[in-house]
């Protein structure tokens, strides 16, 4: 179980590298941030927001403010990927927690 999770985390870290190859504009950065924000909202509603997600989002917003759209988009994509992972984790736990419960 633990190994599976670690695998997911690694994938999450690789995603932004691929995304940064695309050409970024203010609009694309903003939409990446919006997409990440929606995913984060979902994660929070499932009581599983990762600290790294919030940090990546903060980086994205800061880069956007400074006009570095490529960096903003990269960070936002990273944030969304992390948020998705935590959502996956929370979804899985909805069923798996029972296995850890002491009866």
């Amino acid at each position: 179980m633990k190994g599976f999770r670690c695998g997911l985390v690694l994938v999450g870290l690789l995603v932004p590298v691929a995304a940064s190859a695309a050409v970024a504009s203010k609009a694309s950065a903003a939409s990446a941030i919006a997409a990440a924000q929606a995913e984060m909202k979902l994660a929070a509603s499932m009581q599983d927001q990762w600290i790294a997600t919030v940090a990546a989002m903060k980086d994205a917003r800061l880069a956007l403010k400074q006009g570095d759209f490529a960096a903003a988009e990269t960070a936002a994509v990273h944030a969304k990927a992390l948020a998705s992972l935590s959502v996956e984790q929370a979804k899985a736990q909805r069923a798996l927690w029972v296995n850890e419960a002491v009866h």
């Binding site: 984790q89 736990q93 419960a101």
Partner: peptide, 22 residues
């Protein structure tokens, strides 16, 4: 509360029970 206690969360994938039961 019970579900929260036993559910793994966070990037390290730990539940309250991981440390305080197992």
């Amino acid at each position: 509360g019970k579900e929260y206690f036993y559910s793994r969360r966070g990037q390290l994938n730990f539940s309250c029970a991981s440390c305080h039961v197992q």
